[in-house]
Design a protein around this nucleic acid. Structure first.
Length: 892
RNA sequence: AGGGGCUUAGCUCAGUUGGUAGAGCGCCACCCUUACAAGGUGGAUGUCGUCGGUUCGAUCCCGGCAGCCCCUACCA
């Protein structure tokens, strides 16, 4: 007894139940030891603070598609999930909580604060996993890792110590990007440059000998409090004679020297630059080469310090105003002009980044970069789309040392201890009891933690148990795909490659698949401030996870950003419903069908197959081929589109319609054969679609008469493993059915254009010359009658064309003349219009083709096939034109 | 400034070896035809950004121009 399905697919009834069943059945589990070939993707770990957003939805859908596809292909597929402690983000979240409670981290103290963060993590850290389950992510959850897990911390320390030993991690006093709200250094990559309208102030610095002033130009007047030189171009005739002389920095009244450096552009501003080595990256370099003094005028919180004299305690912005005012009143401000410049902002807090002199830890990247470049150049690691290769290599060629220390509390604390006695720094994997140099036990661990990306860089192997040698690594490292957005190529991808090569002596992954950003329907980035973010979970609740997944995949074109709108998702929700209803049709018509014992291997009875059966199998073979080729070449949207068109445009629109007369007909043998084909094709449709829309396909699969254990672990059909069944499709049937389809379309076209009511059954004649075509039409008479809504049909009889609508159907080299007497049904205006339109089109085509074919050079140079095809088309068009003209005259 | 990308139907985009332009949505008309109105049938819509070159032939290849976007780096 067949099950009864509701006429609408209700995703909410299905998804939770199906997911739970998958998970409890252990279908997501991969195995450390297996005879199956391995396939592995490491999930880019979302922040523990995070909620699933559309970017994740896209990223995860791609990964889940790959994992499910490979799993169905018999791979030991591992999708390894994890979350990132996200130093800054998480600390900020918890600090906000504390603020609400009227306290802060400094009041709590470091240990108590960290405990609070852990509390928060335990309470909320897994909520993103719950959201991922809503999407259908088939991760091996038992392996989930957190970046602060004991093992990962062990890996981090081992890597730190090892690189330190090699001299590739060092501590240095450097100018770093400083985020005042965070009171921490941030890396170059965390700085966002924004174009801003600034001001260029021209300021007079009195010359030492009292002979006048030197005018400098600056956009940041407040930093003059830290000036330790002014600089001119050595070739500048205006200032050449002043080099070596002293000037006084106003307000702070510091005497500094005029130095010369080619860095200064004579053309810009006044041609004189103030040098503030402690607060500007270029000035820092000059300060180093000229041996200048470095005066730091800032506190860690972004206010001015004691070196700023009267301005101490002010914020930078306030100090700037005050400095300008004071200069004005001293008559030292020459002029101010508007000046566009780009200003670095902290990507986390949006605060203006201050160059700040401080002691930080760095990774020396020079040596790590060499092999990391080579593996990409050699193609061992492939970027998709390929164009990112260039970007990667360009960056690697210009790579700077990586500032890895952060002045935060939440993260991996730097494993370095300073001796209270001899000040020697002991770097060690385990907490040392005593200074390795003098043996003193008065040790103090470095306060800083590591950049979050430091642990992320080790992710492909730290998640697999490294530094222990584990079976997991032996089986799954290197992994196959890394799927992410291109904005973290440098933050993350490059660093994983460097660390993987250094510590595993092998690449971390083979293919880096880079997808675009999800934007709103107008192409804007989704952001909280714009309020245009779509929440994937809400969309899932409204349209179902499958609809969301399918619409993301269907519009994913090679690395481009994708614009999503609810309307679009709704369209794919409708598609899901279409599949659902096709299943309802099938099940209704399979109620008396007994599943063969051979299951999916059962083959149809050759003798009783209809041409429609052969045709749909032929089309199935095409789509299986297209899907496999598309997936193999990372063209996921092509696969999705091919399936969409097959399922809707062929299976539903035609095959099911063709089945109706057969299912209701009295040829029992034919019916039984078609039932088997219907059941087999639907079984394949569901398997083919599963990686794209897992929930509905699993649900349908469970109701099919022919099915495997579970769709998720069933075999993915391709032209090899499905060869025996696909062999029943053939091109001759495809031609036959195409001829029938085209004829039906021509009838419908005439009906539509002439506004013949669908309820009106009409009589038609089909003019054919070839016996074979006549035979085909005869065999398919019932389909033509039903789908053309006919009362009667005469095949092979042209008869009198007076007052008849005529349309010509050409498939390959065969032609069918569709003739519909209109006398008494309609006035002929519409039909005359329709025929004139056809004639005009034919005349135009014939003109073009005639021109082309009478061009000797075309006939000589073009491929023979192209010329032959055009010749055929021309002769067919001419025949059609004659017929249509003749038919038209019959109206007049 | 350097690097990359984009410009095709009202909208979002396909178009992989150069041979008379496609899809989805939207639009118009007709239809509740028992799988599905979250549906069916039919229809309209494009000098493929612009100028030139190569070619018998260019949406596709090459060059100039215009417009939009992204990334990287920055002039105090």
């Amino acid at each position: 007894m067949a099950e009864t399905l509701s006429d609408r697919y209700n995703s909410a009834d299905v998804e939770g139940r199906i997911y739970q069943w998958w998970e409890s059945s252990g279908f997501f589990k991969a195995h450390d030891r297996s005879t199956k070939p391995p396939f592995c993707i490491i999930l880019p770990p979302p922040n523990v603070t995070g909620f699933l957003h559309m970017g994740h939805a896209l990223d995860h859908t791609i990964q889940d598609l790959l994992i499910r596809w490979k799993r169905m292909n018999g791979y030991n597929a591992l999708w390894l999930p994890g979350t990132d402690h996200a130093g800054i983000a998480t600390q900020t979240v918890v600090e906000k909580e504390l603020k609400k409670q009227g306290t802060n981290r400094h009041q709590l103290g470091r240990d108590a604060f960290i405990e609070k963060v852990w509390d928060w993590k335990h309470q909320y850290g897994d909520r993103i996993y719950a959201q991922m389950r809503r999407l259908g992510d088939s991760c091996d959850w038992d392996r989930a890792v957190f970046t602060l897990d004991e093992n990962v911390s062990k890996a981090v320390r081992k890597v730190f110590v090892s690189l330190h030993k090699k001299g590739w991690i060092y501590k240095g006093l450097r100018l770093v990007n400083w985020s005042a709200p965070l009171e921490s250094a941030i890396s170059d990559l965390e700085v966002e440059h924004k174009q801003t309208k600034g001001t260029l102030w021209h300021i007079n610095y009195p010359l030492e000998d009292g002979s006048g002033f030197l005018t400098i130009a600056t956009t940041r007047p407040e930093t003059m409090l830290g000036d330790t030189a002014v600089c001119v171009n050595p070739e500048d005739p205006r200032y050449k004679h002043l080099i070596g002389m002293g000037v006084t920095v106003p307000l702070i009244n510091r005497k500094v020297t005029i130095i010369a450096d080619t860095y200064v552009d004579k053309e810009f501003g006044s041609g004189v630059v103030k040098i503030t080595p402690a607060h500007d990256f270029n000035d820092f370099r000059i300060g180093k080469t000229h041996g200048l003094e470095f005066i730091n005028i800032l506190n860690r919180n972004g206010t001015l310090n004691e070196n700023a004299g009267a301005y101490q305690g002010m914020k930078v912005a306030d100090a700037r105003k005050k400095v300008v005012e004071d200069l004005k009143s001293l008559n030292l401000l020459v002029k101010e002009e508007p000046h566009a410049l780009s200003v670095g902002h902290c990507s986390r807090t949006d605060a203006v980044v201050e160059p700040f002199l401080s002691e930080q830890w760095f990774v020396k990247t020079e040596h790590l970069a060499v092999p990391a470049k080579r593996v990409v150049e050699s193609g061992t690691i492939r970027f998709e789309p390929e164009s990112w290769t260039k970007v990667y290599l360009h960056w690697m060629n210009n790579i700077e040392d990586w500032c890895i220390s952060r002045q935060l509390w939440w993260g991996h604390r730097i494993p370095a201890w300073t001796c209270g006695k001899c000040e020697h720094v002991t770097v060690s994997e385990t907490d040392p009891a005593a200074c390795e140099k003098c043996g003193d036990t008065n040790l103090k661990q470095d306060d800083d933690v590591l950049d979050t990306w430091f642990s992320s860089a080790l992710w492909p192997f730290s998640t697999m148990g490294w530094p222990e040698e584990t079976e997991t690594q032996k089986t799954f490292y290197p992994t196959n795909y890394l799927v992410t957005a291109p904005d973290i190529i440098f933050f993350w991808v490059a660093r994983m490659i460097m660390m993987g090569l250094e510590f595993k002596r092998d690449v971390p992954f083979r293919t880096v698949y880079l997808h675009g950003i999800v934007r709103d329907s107008q192409g804007r980035k989704m952001s909280k401030s714009l309020g245009n973010s779509l929440d994937p979970v809400e969309l899932i609740e409204k349209y179902g996870a499958d609809a969301l997944r399918f619409s993301l995949i269907a519009h994913l074109y090679s690395g481009k950003d994708i614009k999503v709108s609810e309307q679009r998702i709704e369209g794919y929700r409708n598609f899901m419903n279409k599949i659902w209803n096709a299943t309802r049709f099938a099940l209704q018509n399979l109620s008396d069908f007994t599943a063969p014992s051979e299951g999916v291997k059962a083959l149809p009875d050759k003798a009783n197959m209809s041409s429609f059966d052969r045709w749909i199998i032929f089309k199935l073979a095409e789509v299986e081929k297209a899907v496999e080729e598309a997936l193999e070449s990372d063209r996921f949207s092509d696969a999705a589109q091919a399936l969409y068109h097959f399922v809707w445009g062929q299976f539903c629109d035609w095959y099911i319609e063709f089945m109706k007369p057969i299912m209701n007909g009295d040829n029992a043998a034919e019916r039984r054969t078609s039932q088997l084909v219907l059941a087999q094709v639907l079984n394949r449709v569901v398997r083919l679609m599963h990686p794209f829309c897992p929930f509905i396909t699993e649900e349908i699969h469970s109701k099919l008469p022919i099915k495997g254990e579970a769709c998720i672990v069933d075999q993915f059909p391709n032209t090899r493993n499905d060869k025996d069944f696909l062999a029943f499709g053939n091109e001759q049937s495809a031609f036959e059915v195409d001829l029938v389809k085209e004829t039906i379309t021509a009838i419908r076209n005439i009906r539509g254009e002439n506004r013949l009511s669908p309820a009106l059954k009409i009589r038609i004649r089909l003019g054919v010359t070839e016996d074979s075509v006549q035979k085909i039409l005869g065999t398919n008479k019932s389909a033509l009658m039903t789908m053309g809504r006919l009362e009667d049909i005469e095949i092979g009889v042209e008869g009198d064309l007076r007052k008849c609508a005529v349309a010509l159907v050409t498939v390959k080299e065969s032609t069918v003349k569709v003739i519909i007497p209109l006398e008494g049904l309609v006035d002929f205006d519409e039909e005359i219009k329709r025929m004139r339109k056809t004639i005009e089109k034919l005349e135009k085509d014939i003109g073009l083709l005639t021109n082309k074919l009478s061009n000797e050079k075309f006939v000589q140079n073009a491929d023979e096939e192209v010329v032959a095809a055009d010749r055929l088309l021309l002769s067919q068009s001419k025949v059609q034109l004659t017929s249509m003209r003749e038919a038209l005259t019959r109206f007049q």
